[in-house]
Each structure stands twice: as structure tokens, then as C-alpha cells.
Simulated assay, not measured.
Amino acid sequence: MNSPYNKKDNESLSDDIVWHNATVTHADRESLKQQKSVVLWFTGLSGSGKSTVANAVESKLLSLGKFSYLLDGDNVRHGLNKDLGFSDQDRIENIRRIGEVAKLFVDSGSIVLTAFISPFISDRQQVRELLQPQQFLEVFIDTPIEVCEQRDPKGLYKKARAGEIKHFTGIDSEYQAPVSPEIHVKTAEFSVEQCAEQIVAQLEQRGYLKLSAV
């Protein structure tokens, strides 16, 4: 199996570092799990319901006997990305790291769910380009900011409006909505259960939940 990294990825690497090709392949792992691996990239404003819907989707996948893992924005910042703040540059690095982690999970044959605001189109595109075609599905959790503020589960909008939080997406930092997401979910119009069912149905229709050509 060839390296999953392209030439551009390797430009900054030392000549002494080479990709180790494992005996067990990506295809072997998918065959064992009887599924097609993919990244479900949940993006949307804070309070839109990304983590809630992603969690419901993972529960449904578990009930179907599928192998998945949820990477949540807050959880990742407790460990891997705890050194990063919320400036535009730190947000870019946050997503870059998550993209690399998600890529490893895809190589393991898993269905990866990532719940991050990921406000910039270019960063989401960069993650897409790390993966093979059809290994990345952008899931736009499309919720009006007025609804997100009404929910405000962590009280973050209130703090941002009061100037206590800087660089808050949707207030004083830009959110660039997806132009053509593979899956478009509107949590203001449908329940969490209905949104999760919509996403799982899309996975099934696209052939990810059984081992066959997608």
C-alpha cells in the first residue's frame, strides 16, 4: 500500500523520515468492519446542535453494529489542542490537527464524526483534500444565529455580547457557511432524532454502511 500522504504533505519532512507501510491494509480493516470509512464533518455555529446531533448519529451507528468515533471540539481542546486559543490562526491549526487525526481514523476503517465550528471554507477544504474522494462528507448544521443565541447552552453568546469573549464566531469572528455540503441539516425545523435519522439515511443511500462500491 502506498503512503496516504501526497508529495505536498512530504515537502517539509526530513529525507530521513519515510512512511512505513503496514501489512494490514485499509481495505483489510474495512473488510473486517464491513463498512466504508468516511469523515462526517459537522460544521455550524456554536449552539447549532453539532455535538448533540453527532452524538445521536453515533448512537444509531452503534445500534447498527457499525464502528465509529466522535471527535468533539471541546473534548479535543482538553488534550491534543489545549495549547491553542481562538484567534484565526489558532483556529486554522486546530482544524489542521483534527484533519490529520480524522485521516488516521479513516485509515483504521472507521466512520469518523467531527463536531467543530470550523468557520473557514478553506480549512474545511484542506481537510477534504487530505482524504481520498468520497471519504469526506460535509454536514452543515444550519441553524440561524438567533436560534443559537436563544439556546446558548454554555452562556457563550451572552459573554461574547458583553465583550468577555473575543474572536467569537458569529459575533466578532466570521463564519463562512458551506456552499455545497453533502448533507444539509436544519435543527431549527426538525428534532435531534429526525436530524440523526436524516444523516444515517444518507450514509446508507451512499453505501457507507455496507462493504460495497460507494
Rank of each mutant, 00 (worst) to 15 (best):
E129Q: 14
L130E: 06
Q132S: 14
Q135R: 15
Q135G: 03
F136L: 08
F136M: 09
F136G: 03
F136E: 06
L137E: 09
E138G: 03
V139F: 09
V139K: 03
V139Y: 07
F140G: 00
F140E: 00
I141L: 11
D142T: 08
D142Y: 05
T143P: 01
T143V: 13
T143A: 12
P144Y: 11
I145E: 01
E146H: 05
E146T: 15
V147P: 00
C148T: 04
E149P: 00
Q150K: 15
Q150H: 13
R151S: 02
R151A: 03
K154P: 12
K154W: 13
G155D: 06
L156S: 05
Y157H: 05
Y157A: 01
Y157S: 03
Y157C: 02
K158N: 04
K158P: 00
K159W: 00
A160W: 04
R161T: 10
G163I: 13
G163M: 09
G163Y: 09
G163N: 10
E164P: 04
I165P: 01
I165W: 03
I165R: 02
H167N: 15
H167G: 05
H167C: 12
F168S: 09
I171G: 07
S173H: 11
E174P: 02
E174V: 15
Y175A: 08
Y175I: 09
Q176D: 05
A177E: 11
A177Q: 13
